[in-house]
Design a protein around this nucleic acid. Structure first.
Lengths: 341, 341
DNA sequence: GCAGCCGATGTAAGCGCTTACATCGGCTGC
DNA sequence: GCAGCCGATGTAAGCGCTTACATCGGCTGC
């Protein structure tokens, strides 16, 4: 109830339980052999004093932080909360704390994130953002810290990769639009400097080629993966001489922006124009009309990222691995037959 | 490039810079007097070795963790990301790390969150969720750790409170609906066990009384602050003998659920029924029609929470304070004149 | 010319844990 | 009956920092 006399540490607990600090430590950590009666005395003392071991001292003493780093771009981007949650839940269940940092799409801030990770001596890092920092990767490698990336380059020693199967879902979507009679299919890409945006774009181009549809540069516009960017890009798309009958967007926010632009021009979705998003964020079910989109499970990404890290940590394999995450078309109401021309 | 010889610690740096560890520490922390030439030698060594001080050792040595705890319910609830981001940005700018934990609306998990905070020796905690844990509050008080709550009870020693001015925005909304001719105004409340939901509800009742509108129990239904709950509650509301002409919802997700229910029944918003949400999450701009709602700035909440904590930490005032956050009606397209009966 | 001060730096204890190693009974097995 | 083992516990060093205190010149001011 009242204040504590000086510092509540393991020694106070040991004194109260009439054992040594080693026994307190062993009891609380469940290592070594402790007589049940002794353990009870220790736990009683812990409870009576409301003792919580100092995590810093624990890390320092054991040489293990039990912390995993999770780097994302921006928690306000609806892509991330699910991912963070699933990663965190999995990590907590295995006794790891997590250090979550946001890069805000800013290289300087990414460097700061990396520094914080290093200072905290994280045991592994999941880099769920494209802005990879080369210096950081080196420093992590120097310290033998395992890393899991998202859609990054090659798998290496202690570097695994979560590979989203973009082409799969995008091929499905194009096939679906093709079957509905669409031949003029536009693409609203993400920012060109974003790796995952580039992959989506090239998967789109590949899909078109497969159906022998000529690629018209004016039917590809660049957004920024945000609503406003999608809206602006869609307006450009709709202003061309022969507008598309269907639009595939690089992510759902872009698609939502496009939806707005289309409706602003007095056109209807899907009667006048079909629209397909990407990601399947919760929002995409709530638009009018609900969005047909390519589903990418963020929960799966988060869980796989954690397990990839855990595998590396447990040293089961020194070498990193690829972890594929599938994508699938989810048909809702923003797509329909191509308007006969 | 290659692996390090054993452990890279402050002593290695001191050796390389030909100074004592104290001088390295002083240089890196910018305390005490260090000759510029000496400081340069130190920084050169730090860079050359890619040295990052061990945060645990730092905490232990200095007795200060420089960590602030932030407890929220669920990062996937769209209320929180903005709050987290603004809190975190403010904290980082002042040299604090943050420990973010989710209670998942679960008392057990809340207890675990509290334990993690205590083990990490956070210097202050922002509890941005209603599920307050009494035991936790006591333990924090025992350790003289400042706390900032959201919409909680009284201000006490080392406990400040962010008080959202619910009545203000709700009164505005009811006045607005009243002026549009609405007299049968329904309320979709949040879960009764949630403190902030109760405050919103009583502010609603007070608003009705002010306009001498009788309170009909059947026009108040309980949701759960999620879309599905709002949908179900709204269906009940629309099934009564004399349905309302306007609905005020306890949060935007509930309103969105209600919107769905209304449209499912072939009714139009706002022609047949007006709808007002609460919170002004980004989503509320994207529904069809965009939602009239009562705005509550999560960014402001996050920033004020941090500054409240900082004030307590700096010991400017031992006693906690109240920090009001205003709410305001934002008129969009989900509200209109009451249908003449 | 020298006492005294102050800036610059070093020494070493201490923070609160973990854990290798030591110790010490009591029991097992021949 | 006793060597040897093992379970239970304690001792104390060590983890990597910070910081109080000590030290040591050189300069200031009379």
């Amino acid at each position: 109830m009242s204040g504590f006399e000086r510092n509540l540490n393991i020694e106070l607990v040991a004194r109260k339980a009439k054992v040594s600090t080693a026994t307190v430590s062993r009891t609380m950590n469940g290592v070594g052999n402790v007589r049940p009666e002794t353990a009870k005395r220790v736990w009683d003392a812990v409870r009576a004093l409301q003792y919580h071991p100092n995590a810093s001292a624990r890390s320092l003493g054991s040489g293990r932080s039990r912390i995993l780093g999770l780097i994302i771009s921006d928690i306000c981007n609806p892509f991330f909360p699910d991912l963070v949650k699933s990663f965190e839940d999995a990590a907590l269940a295995c006794g790891y704390e997590i250090l979550l940092t946001n890069t805000n799409y800013d290289p300087d801030r990414m460097a700061r994130c990396a520094q914080r990770m290093l200072e905290r001596r994280v045991e592994g890092v999941a880099v769920m953002t494209s802005e990879m920092d080369q210096k950081m990767m080196e420093e992590l490698a120097n310290r033998s810290i395992p890393v899991v990336c998202l859609d990054s380059g090659a798998v290496e020693n202690r570097i695994s990769n979560i590979r989203v199967q973009y082409p799969q879902g995008i091929a499905e979507a194009i096939q679906y639009l093709y079957d509905l009679g669409h031949r003029r299919i536009a693409f609203l890409s993400g920012p060109a400097n974003l790796a995952s945006a580039r992959v989506r774009r090239s998967a789109f181009l590949k899909g078109l080629r497969k159906h022998h549809i000529a690629i018209e540069p004016e039917l590809i516009q660049e957004g920024n993966h945000r609503i406003a960017g999608g809206e602006a890009a869609a307006h450009k798309l709709l202003a061309v001489s022969r507008p598309p009958t269907a639009i595939l967007a690089s992510n759902d926010l872009t698609a939502i922006g496009a939806l707005r632009a289309i409706q602003q021009r007095g056109l209807r979705v899907p009667e006048d124009i079909s629209l397909v998003g990407f990601d399947d964020i919760e929002l995409s079910q709530l638009t009018g009309p609900p969005l047909t989109t390519i589903q990418l499970s963020r929960t799966e990404v988060g869980q796989k990222a954690f397990h990839a890290l855990l595998t590396l940590l447990q040293g089961k394999s020194q070498r990193g691995e690829e972890y594929p995450v599938e994508t699938h078309l989810v048909v809702r109401q923003s797509t329909g037959h191509a308007r006969s021309l």
